[in-house]
Amino acid sequence: MSRVFIALQDNENARFIVEAIGEDNPEAEVKHSPAMIRVEADDRLVIRRETVEEKLGRDWDTQELQVDMISIGGNVDEDDDSFTLYWNS
């Protein structure tokens, strides 16, 4: 088992993205530090477009994540509907 993580700028978008992550990954752990939010989970973390759109109340492209994201740990798999971080080991 290994930890995957994503760090986001602590801004208006990120609040809703983090809320969506929490809903889709109930075991994820959220850590706040000055100006940034880090979300960690064991082995796998999924960000779903539909959940983020519901929280933001507008259309959201998974690639928009690139504007708010500041770091990640894990392999990435991204398509139109979701952004996934995972470790194989």
């Binding site: 100006a35 690139q66 504007v67 994201m69 500041i70 770091s71």
Partner: peptide
């Protein structure tokens, strides 16, 4: 960058995080 934010340096934290968004890629 968190340190810059914590020390009131808005310019550095902002360019830092903006650069870091490319860095994640």
């Amino acid at each position: 960058m968190s340190g810059a934010a914590y020390n009131g340096d808005m310019n550095t934290v902002t360019f830092g995080f903006s650069a870091q968004s490319d860095e994640a890629r």
